[in-house]
Each structure stands twice: as C-alpha cells, then as structure tokens.
Design a protein around this nucleic acid. Structure first.
Length: 423
RNA sequence: GCGGGCGUAGCCAAGUGGUUAAGGCAGCGGCUUGUGGCGCCGCCAUUCGGGGGUUCAAGUCCCCUCGCUCGCCCCA
C-alpha cells in the first residue's frame, strides 16, 4: 500500500508549538537567575570524543558502560553524543585556557543523550540546564550553588521539593571507607541479591543505593561513609550545612546518597519531588574536585549541578504552574479580492515593521470564515479590506473585543492607531 | 537490559467474531459571491500502529513486530 510512515526514533520527542511557551518560560526564568548570580553561558558541541566521557565520568558507571550513543565517524574517530554537560564544559575550559583568567562561573543548557528505556520523565534525548563553578573550593560555593538551584525551582513554582544532602569526603576518605564497606559486605554475601554481590568488586558504594528491600534491610547496619570522613572533611560538611541553615534552605541528610558519576567528592545532593513518580530527581549535583586534573588540567576545585527540563516541566504542569498560552496577534488582517489582498499584505508587513504582531489571512475564503478565524486567534483588532475599500484606498478597523464597531480609516491612520503613535 | 498495561481520524472516544467503523472537539465548505463569537447543513478512517495466521466471517481471537505507558534498573 502507501509509503511507510516515518516516525521519530524511540525516545526522541518533538516539542510542539503548544508546549514551547512552557519551555521558553522556564528558560527565561533560568537565564535571569543565572545572570543575577553572575554566571556566563557556555555552549559546547553535542558530539565529543568518546574518551572524554570514559575518562571524565568513569568506565564503571552505567552511563558510560551501557547508555552512550557512540559510533565511529567517517575518519574512524570514536565519537559520542554527550550524555551530560560537565565533562564537555571542563574540556572546553581547559582547551581555551579559561582558568588562567581566574575562577569560572558558567551555565549551560541543551540536549543530552542516553540510550535508556524511555519512561515518564526519561527520554533518550533530554534537556538539561546546569551550572559549573570551576576554581571554587570554599564551602560557601557549595551552599551558593545549591541555593541558586533551590531558588530557581521555587521561583518557577515547583512543588513537593526535598533537598537530600550527603558528603562523600575526599579520595582518601572514600578509599578508607570502601575498604571497610567491602570487608563488611563480604561477611554478608549470602544475604545480598546477585546484583549487589557483583558490585562488591566493581562499584561497592552504589550498593548503598539499592532499591531491593531485602538488600536495604541488610544495609541498615552497614558502616556509613559519614563515619569514615577525616576531621577536615567532616568540618567542611558541617560548614556547608550551617550555611544552608542560614539560607533557610531545608534539607535531609541522606548517608546513602551516592551519585552515579565517579567524579563526585565531598558535597553531593539531589533535589527530588514527590510529584514525579519513579523519576523523582529534578536536580542533581555535587563537588568534583578531581575532574579537572583527571582531564589533564591543573588541580581545580569545582562544584556544579544539572536540572532535567522534561521532569521540571512535568512537575510544573502537575503543580498548575505551567507557562502561558501560544502567542496572540495584535491584529488579524482579513481581505477579499485581488486589489484588497495586495493591500492587506502590504499593511501587515508595515505593522510588523512597526513592532506589531500581525496575522494575515491568506485563505481567500468568505469574510465570515476569515472573521471566524480572526476571532479564534484572540486578536483584539481586525483589519477588514474588501474590494470597495481597496478601490477607495481605505480599510475598516474592527474592534473584536467590544461590540465589533468599525471605523473607516486610511492605511496611515490605521498604522498610527494600532502602533499607538500620535494620530 | 527485565517485567506489567495499552495502541480505532490531528485530539477525545463508542465498539466484547457477523459484514455501511457511533459520537464529540478541531479542520474544511456552505447557509451569508462583504463581516466573528450562536445556530443549521454538508465534507472529513475503503479502515482500526505494522505484518502474518485462525475462521464462511477479524477492529474484536492467536503469533511476530513497532511504538506508547507504568514499574525495575539508572539518573536529570
């Protein structure tokens, strides 16, 4: 039969005109928050050398191990569509020597790609906005980064938010803890689910995150990372907490919060909402003091986070805080007959040149049809041009919101009337 | 990658093996060859995501496949 219908790839979704006002609203509010916080935008390529993510995110992670869109280009270079933003931002900052100009306060936004099973709030192409402070070691930067995320989400009207906080300590702390945890887990191997057993060798910290109730029950007694922090790490965490208290940002300590990407250290946090179902995390982030060095740069303290826009917009819709409707024209121009139609195009363009949103009806249908559309467009004014008006060089200006009263005016008078200039 | 549910027009949706696939919204045309919001009339699925099978007969049953969805996993 007919030609096979084409459709978008699985997990790749279109954003249609009716949805975009909500997106644009979120983006505008985010931009404004970033501007006031003294952040500068950075844009990096969607496609990067695979090694950037392998080295930056960690080979043992799920994201790198099984979720990347990787392929060889025509010159046999290993390429990957970015699964997250931080590694690219760090690469760009190093490549262009931006750190020599001092600490960098950056934000970014755009599509990310992960080959996962699509689900509510989880697509294969999804969008994040995020910020990165590079060269920021002070505990105040942790609190500031979190506060900016919290303020942004709150300002947008997100509801049911909770901030979960943990400290992962530094590399030494984690090595010590890892040893203690592995020892403890080995003793209880037979009580753990098979997946957890596998992870004892590969990524034991992630076992703490297990959703398996039986495993969680066993883990209730497990040693905690927080108890293996050095005095300095502990003190640092305490400072961050005090600053958050001072900012009146509520949080819950979650000693089991272990972020999936390898580069995190010290502060780790997630902002979740109880309105989102399984994919509850709207914002995730933390400190990644080792990453810059790992990617070939100087030792550089850093912290950042990312917000998932699809999830955020779902959240705003559920909270009834979604954006405005699609654009409404100021004038709807209706015409019939060759002379009138030419005049209508000219008038519409002149209105646009003067800053007005003018919609031109090109259907050539009966006036009743055209006016029906004018009414539905929501425009407060219609300009009506028929053959007799066109011959006399005048147009009718019709008030669609009031009683529908019409004035006969010359084109310059209409322009003056609709653009608010003195008539 | 694993498990459950679902798939009728642009959208919502009736239909539960018997042969012309309800209805509503939107769209298009007309009543009104020049006037909107209301009304009335007409048009809008040779076909039920796609393919195969069972049957005299399939949107309805079976298999495969694609997609959506919910959960697991992971994460934003």
């Amino acid at each position: 039969m007919g030609v096979e219908k084409l459709q978008s790839l699985r997990g790749m979704v279109d954003l249609l005109p009716a949805q975009l006002p909500a997106w644009q609203h979120v983006e505008a509010v985010a931009r404004d928050h970033f501007r006031r916080a003294g952040l500068n935008e950075i844009r990096t390529p969607l496609l990067e050398v695979t090694e950037l993510f392998a080295r930056g995110i960690g080979e043992a992670t799920d994201v790198v191990g099984k979720e990347m869109y990787s392929f060889e280009d025509r010159s046999q270079r290993r390429c990957t569509l970015r699964p997250e933003g931080t590694a690219s931002v760090v690469r760009a900052v190093l490549e262009h020597g931006l750190l020599s100009q001092g600490p960098q306060r950056l934000w970014y936004g755009g599509p990310m790609f992960r080959y996962e099973r699509p689900q509510a709030g989880r697509q294969r192409q999804f969008h994040q906005i995020g910020l990165e402070f590079l060269g920021a070691a002070d505990p105040r930067s942790d609190a500031e980064a979190i506060a900016i995320a919290w303020d942004l989400l709150t300002a947008l009207g997100a509801s049911g938010l909770a901030l979960e906080l943990n400290s992962l300590g530094d590399a030494n702390d984690r090595a010590a803890y890892r040893q203690a945890l592995v020892g403890w887990l080995e003793q209880r191997r037979e009580q753990l689910d098979p997946e957890a057993c596998e992870r004892i060798a590969t990524n034991p910290l992630r076992i703490l995150d297990s959703k398996n109730p039986a495993t969680q029950a066993v883990l209730a007694e497990a040693p905690l990372l927080i108890d293996h922090l050095s005095a300095a790490s502990r003190q640092r965490f305490e400072q961050v907490r005090q600053l958050l208290d001072r900012l009146a940002i509520p949080y819950q300590l979650n000693p089991r919060l272990v972020r999936g990407l390898d580069y995190y250290a010290h502060t780790a946090f997630e902002i979740t909402s109880d309105q989102l179902g399984a994919q509850a995390t709207v914002c995730g982030g933390g400190r990644y003091d080792g990453l810059v060095e790992q990617l070939g740069g100087p030792p550089t303290a850093a912290i950042g986070w990312a917000i998932g826009l699809e999830r955020l917009i779902v959240l705003l819709e559920r909270a009834g805080a979604a954006g405005a409707a699609v654009a409404v024209p100021a004038v709807y121009v209706v015409s019939r007959g060759p002379l009138a139609e030419a005049m209508a195009l000219d008038l519409a363009m002149q209105l646009r040149r003067r800053g007005q949103a003018a919609e031109l009806d090109l259907s050539g249908a009966a006036f009743s049809r055209q006016l029906k559309r004018a009414d539905r467009s929501g425009a407060p004014w219609a300009v009506v041009i028929g053959e007799s008006e066109a011959e006399q060089g005048v147009v009718l200006l019709k008030d669609l919101l009031g009683g529908g009263a019409e004035q006969r005016l010359s084109p310059p008078a209409v322009l003056a009337h609709l653009t608010g200039s003195a008539s």
